[in-house]
Design a protein around this nucleic acid. Structure first.
Length: 502
RNA sequence: GAUCGCUUAGCUCAGCCGGUAGAGCAACUGACUUUUAAUCAGUAGGUCGAGGGUUCGAAUCCCUCAGCGAUCACCA
């Protein structure tokens, strides 16, 4: 017999013990009057040895047991509190069932609150009862579950066990709530658009493909909600809309990339990219304040200040600062490629002017942008949905916001000229034909949408997972996604674990 | 996709130059209504990630594969 089976069987025996005692081991709910955290706070000041006489009912998980079940550490979602089960207070019939408890069991306790002579806030149990039996062993109580892979695969254990992990997901929720609230405060309407697209659009990325049976139709999981949100702007449902939701990209995994990730996209009619910069600052600052109470955050021992108005610098200007090369002075792609290669950049043959600028920026500038910075005026070649800059048609009214060397936001004055959009899609589809499987698809329906007339509009996207990473000092995106995408676990280990259960 | 590293009991980890598989916690039996990582005595628990090879002998050396991590590449 393997040991896991041993533990499992002993717990099963205890489960039967409850039934023998006439108590259902998966009980009905009880009325919980207090939580551990609240009690710790309320009675923080009482002295060691003081008995309050206040009766409370709590419920939670048994995290540790001392002295034959006399002392139990009970944990609920707010914290821990000690339970004292002594024959002075506890009905003999409950004394009998104490031995049926296992670590991890969810129980309820009613009794009076006191502080023990050893200064531990404690409930003297008068009634203690199983609410739900735990058949699986919890991780080791001192070190907890540190195996990073197991924490990702078995998040339910990680959360019961790991305060830091729990805190990250609570903060994630607060960050998203703060951003949503900031958008609502700005007068934006929250909307929803399809996640299954007949033509994937709105971003440069490889999509997931799926198939609808009844329609016999190929569909793509969305890589961005952008084009649908613009359709809503055309429709005029509101001048200000936003969507918070999942996007899916069929690309490599890394500490900064999960195949599904959460973004916010916002569109504002009669606004432009400069208005979007203000909006990025407002929403991100609201998120920072919601979890830190200040605008300053430490990430990997580096202080990042999200406060104030962030510097706005053009991409070509930044490249010039770092390399001495002003790509605005290059007249065509060939000259740009030559200059780029002189800088030691790996520039593929056939790159266009904008792609060279982007490579120079990625290689030479990106990693240096630690403090929040809006990088503006991105090349038109790499911005197929952004409006060209009137003063320089090679550039667009687009910016990306960088923090800690990461692109956190991407925004622009939306291209609303259907003729221009037609030409951009055409250029993209030529790139696609040339073998670029990330180039945008040609979306005729979207062209038609623009033909109805879209007002001048500013659009914005923010990657929320990365923002959560920054605000929780998390160094892997999997630490901020409750159930990150994982390869299937080795079959053998799972089967072994299941063996004992039958 | 490339390089490097990790994988030993349910959990956390030792295991050196190849020589019978180890500890703590958890579990089980017993003692004690006593605590703060409770204590004491005892018991049990292993396909050493998987497969192959070298060897008299492999957790250990070699090869292949898998999962995970870090870095790089693509991307947000």
């Amino acid at each position: 017999m393997t040991e896991i089976a041993d533990i499992y069987k002993s717990r099963l025996a205890n489960l039967d013990g409850w039934r023998d005692a006439g108590i259902e081991p998966y009980a009905e709910k009880v009325k919980v009057t207090h939580h551990a955290g609240g009690l710790q706070e309320k009675y923080a000041e009482i002295e060691a040895g003081f008995e309050t006489g206040d009766t409370v009912t709590v419920a939670g998980r048994i995290m540790s047991v001392r002295n034959n079940g006399m002392f139990i550490d009970l944990q609920d979602h707010t914290g821990k509190i000690q339970i004292f089960s002594h024959k002075q207070n506890l009905d003999p019939k409950y004394m009998e069932t104490l031995k049926l408890f296992d670590l991890g069991d969810i129980i309820t306790v009613t009794g009076k609150v006191r502080r023990t002579p050893r200064n531990e806030l404690t409930i003297n149990s008068e009634h203690i009862q199983l609410l739900s039996k735990s058949l699986q062993p919890l991780p080791e109580k001192h070190h907890g579950m540190t195996d990073i892979e197991l924490r990702y695969r078995k998040r339910h254990i990680d959360l019961t066990d790991n305060e830091i992990s729990k805190d990250v997901f609570i903060k994630r929720s607060k960050i998203i709530t703060a951003i949503r609230q900031a958008m609502l405060d700005e007068g934006f309407l929250e909307v929803e658009t399809p996640m299954m697209h007949p033509i994937p659009g709105g971003a440069t990325a490889k999509p997931f493909v799926t198939h609808h049976l009844a329609l016999d139709q190929q569909l793509y999981l969305r890589i961005a909600p952008e084009l649908y949100l613009k359709r809503l702007i055309v429709g005029g449902i509101s001048d200000k809309i936003f969507e918070i939701g999942r996007c899916f990209r069929n690309e490599g995994l890394s500490p900064k990339h999960n195949p599904e990730f959460t973004s916010i996209e916002a569109y504002q009619a009669h606004a432009n990219y400069e208005d979007m910069m203000d909006l990025v600052e407002k929403t991100v600052q609201a998120a920072v304040k919601a979890v830190h109470g200040t605008t300053k955050v430490t990430y990997k021992e580096q202080e990042i200040d999200f406060g104030g108005s962030w510097p706005r610098k053009s991409m070509t200007e930044l490249v010039k600062e770092k390399t001495g090369v002003d790509f605005l002075e290059t007249t065509d792609a060939e000259e740009a490629i030559k200059k780029g290669r002189e800088l030691g950049l790996d520039v593929p043959d056939g790159s266009n002017w904008g792609q060279v600028v982007a490579i120079a920026f990625d290689e030479k500038v990106e990693a240096t942008l630690i403090q929040p910075t809006h990088v503006t005026d991105l090349p038109l070649d790499i911005s197929p949905l952004a409006k060209a800059k009137p003063s320089n048609p090679r550039l667009t009214e687009r910016f990306e916001s960088f923090i800690n060397g990461w692109e956190i936001a991407n925004a622009f004055s939306e291209l609303n000229d259907p003729f221009d959009q037609y030409r951009r899609f055409k250029a993209q589809s030529e790139q696609k034909d040339a073998g670029d499987d990330e180039a945008h698809h040609f979306d005729e329906d979207f062209i038609e949408t623009l033909e109805f007339g879209m007002p001048p509009t500013g659009g914005l996207g923010i990657g929320l997972d990365r923002l959560v990473m920054l605000l929780t000092d998390s160094h892997n995106i999997r630490d901020v996604i409750a159930f990150p995408t994982m390869r299937p676990a080795a079959a053998a280990s799972l089967v072994t674990k299941m063996d004992g259960k039958t």
